[in-house]
Amino acid sequence: MALDKDKIKDSLTIEDIKLILTDLGSDMKMADKLIFQTVCHGGSKHKLHYYESSKEFHCYTDCGKNMDVYQVVIQAKKLQGFDLTFYEAVKYIANLTGKHYSADSTLDKVNSHIIDDWEFINKYRKRNEINKKIEPIHNLNVFQLFSPYGHISWLNEGISHETMRKFNIGYYLRDDRIVIPHYDIESNLVGIRGRAMRKEDVDSGRKYMPLIVGKTQYSHQTMLNLYGLHKTKDAIKRLKKIALFESEKSVLMCEDFYGDNNFSAAICGSSLSRFHVQLVLSLDVEEVFLCFDKMYRDSDSKEAEIYAKKIMKFANMLSPYCTVYVLWDDFEWIDYREAPCDRGKKVLEDFMRAKYEVKTINEGEIV
């Protein structure tokens, strides 16, 4: 359940403010004035003023800043050696004051109304083996045409040379595309995709496409495979969890974040197939994290509601078998079309802490 930061802040009384500042190690100069010790930067002077009308603090000494109560908490905790995220600051105040106002997230609303489609849900309760497999590519001579070095754009986004070498990422100068080989779980090459670097290719919807070299198109059915499993399956099995992203780039970023503990894979699209589900279940995971791109501009919009219904249907394909979490952006941590990892490791871990658990649904029961 998301916490409504605005409702909580607006509901804070003078006594709540005093309680928060006292808990942060501050004290008041005079009982009849809201002037506190400057815990925002560690000073000893009483120069931190609180203005009830605006719900804002102002530090009249070294800081010289206007801050709301969440910013004061983050600053004070940082001086105490705790690097709080914004979400953790909201939770700290909610727990301290007892004001747990729900944000009524779009994802919550959808989750409580999606259980009418029992035929859709129940057909994923059977764990039938899937026999379809992608034919491996045996002729690897094509790699001689690619530069083995990573593209500067991905290096600038934080994907290291080491990670690109590990996943055999290259560059095809003729088509100006980053080369992304796809392997199945047994490390057989099954396809090669290219990430376009030309603006006209991106603008025309050809950002990610199967690579074409000469008369050969190195395409494969992405619905039958999860990108990165050939490298991350050991961590997934050991940790008994998997994070599913949309793009290959997210898996590469997680490799640099977590190394041998990278438990991610990518569906390489925006739809979770029953073949993806079977692959996930074959790894005997206990937890699944759906880390899909943010495809809504306003979390309270119809656009967000439609997208939430889509994500919840994916979640319910897996929830009968394991615990499923959805990473949903209630706090505007990322922009439209960005993935939860695109802003770095810290933001991704903020998402992980604020994740939504999707309960297993039994017929006739609302959770």
Score class of each variant (00 low, 15 high):
181 P>M: 06
250 S>C: 09
288 V>L: 11
203 D>R: 02
190 V>C: 05
177 R>L: 12
222 T>D: 01
246 E>R: 06
235 A>Y: 09
231 K>N: 11
237 K>Y: 01
198 R>I: 05
178 I>T: 12
179 V>G: 02
190 V>G: 07
251 V>T: 10
224 L>S: 05
235 A>P: 09
248 E>R: 00
282 S>F: 00
218 Y>N: 13
284 D>Y: 08
185 I>H: 01
227 Y>T: 04
250 S>W: 03
201 D>T: 01
216 T>V: 15
248 E>T: 07
245 F>I: 01
202 V>S: 07
214 G>Y: 08
283 L>M: 13
257 F>Y: 15
180 I>Q: 08
278 Q>N: 14
207 K>L: 13
257 F>R: 07
284 D>T: 00
274 R>N: 14
215 K>M: 10
202 V>M: 12
243 A>W: 11
267 I>T: 00
221 Q>D: 14
206 R>Q: 14
183 Y>D: 03
180 I>R: 03
236 I>Q: 10
257 F>V: 14
191 G>S: 13
228 G>N: 09
185 I>K: 01
266 A>I: 03
260 D>F: 01
219 S>V: 09
205 G>T: 08
264 S>L: 05
244 L>I: 15
200 E>L: 04
220 H>P: 00
282 S>D: 15
262 N>K: 12
195 R>H: 11
239 L>Y: 12
273 S>P: 13
263 F>W: 14
257 F>T: 12
239 L>M: 15
204 S>V: 06
256 D>T: 10
216 T>K: 14
238 R>N: 14
200 E>C: 08
221 Q>Y: 03
186 E>V: 01
279 L>Q: 07
191 G>E: 08
237 K>I: 12
288 V>A: 10
181 P>I: 00
209 M>Q: 14
288 V>K: 01
285 V>T: 09
228 G>Y: 07
272 L>W: 11
196 A>R: 03
235 A>K: 06
280 V>R: 05
250 S>E: 09
204 S>M: 05
238 R>D: 13
241 K>N: 14
265 A>Q: 04
259 G>T: 00
219 S>M: 06
190 V>I: 15
280 V>E: 03
195 R>M: 10
238 R>W: 02
211 L>P: 13
179 V>E: 10
208 Y>Q: 05
287 E>W: 05
284 D>H: 10
208 Y>G: 02
212 I>Q: 13
234 D>W: 07
207 K>Q: 12
208 Y>K: 08
178 I>V: 15
260 D>L: 14
287 E>P: 04
251 V>A: 03
193 R>K: 03
241 K>C: 12
259 G>F: 09
260 D>A: 15
209 M>H: 04
201 D>A: 04
197 M>I: 13
227 Y>W: 00
199 K>I: 12
269 G>C: 08
196 A>S: 15
263 F>V: 15
261 N>E: 15
265 A>I: 06
182 H>L: 03
244 L>N: 04
267 I>A: 00
245 F>Q: 06
248 E>Q: 08
193 R>Q: 09
213 V>S: 10
263 F>D: 15
265 A>W: 02
222 T>P: 03
234 D>R: 11
244 L>S: 06
192 I>M: 04
190 V>Q: 01
216 T>W: 01
